[in-house]
Amino acid sequence: MVMLLFLLTLTVFFLFTLLPGDPARLTCGKACTPQIIEANRHRLGLDEPILTQYWKFVSGLFVGRVFSPDSPQPIICNAPCLGYSFNHREQVLTLIMRALPVTFWLASGGFILWLTTGISAGIYAALRRGRWQDRSVMGVALVGYSLPSFFIGLVLIFFVILKWHWLPFPSWVSPFEDPVRFVQTMALPWIVIAVLYAAFYMRLTRNQVLEVFGDDYIRTARAKGLPERTVVVKHALRAGLTPIVTAAGLDLAGLLGGAIITESIFSLPGMGSLAIGSVLNADLPLITGITLMTATFIIFANLVVDLLYGVLDPRVRVS
């Protein structure tokens, strides 16, 4: 995993450094002279050899670094230093730490919502396989899966907020400050995320349950005289849970990197908004930082999922 993270810094750094476009030029503004560009380039540390830049980037992660050391006001960036955004005039880590809670609440609320609805609807459909209930659940899932999130989001905003005034206009507030306002703001984003993902989990759960239905131990469970509900939930779902857990872990990690569209629609100042802003401004240090952070989440989620396998499947456990 350490190796993977190292390769990750390497890829992310060189990918974005080698991109065409000159950050020094972009940060310069309208009244730009070659002198200012040169000064900027020096300030950003872009005039140094690329390997030196990489070395400074990586060592910054561990021991911190100082930007513009020879200027009157050097910027001290403590470890782990992801870089300094000259657009925001703030450290990348500070920016991310400010955006991350928003995304965390968005992702975790949506996660709970989509898992509960997705799995229960999937089981329901599996129990009534081939009948109209199954078909309607799967039909709804297909529609949910096909609708783009900006469409669902805009429709919800239009009806729920603008037309029926059921909810105030969303504006981010921490749940610790104003829990009511927090739920009012997050309700629709959670639904948008849940619709998108629940559809997938419905299908996955239904297919997993139906796939293990043919297995011998399910027949054994029936032969024991267990009620059908127990057969499905305790035996079939348990056996088919592994891929669902895998998908859920990776989806959650991916979402922590930011739900760009949902956050933009509901003007939530989360990772997605931060990411899209950084791309639009060619804010290289910020892009690098966000990518590194997101990728770390996914690697970490992979590890957690692998560890969960051991809990879920006794055959994987090493004694």
Partner: peptide
């Protein structure tokens, strides 16, 4: 399971692995 019970061909797969 109470009045009538059944055992199957393949004991490898007839017990729930988890």
């Amino acid at each position: 399971g109470s009045q009538m019970a059944m055992i199957f061909q393949d004991p490898m797969s007839s017990l729930h692995p988890f």
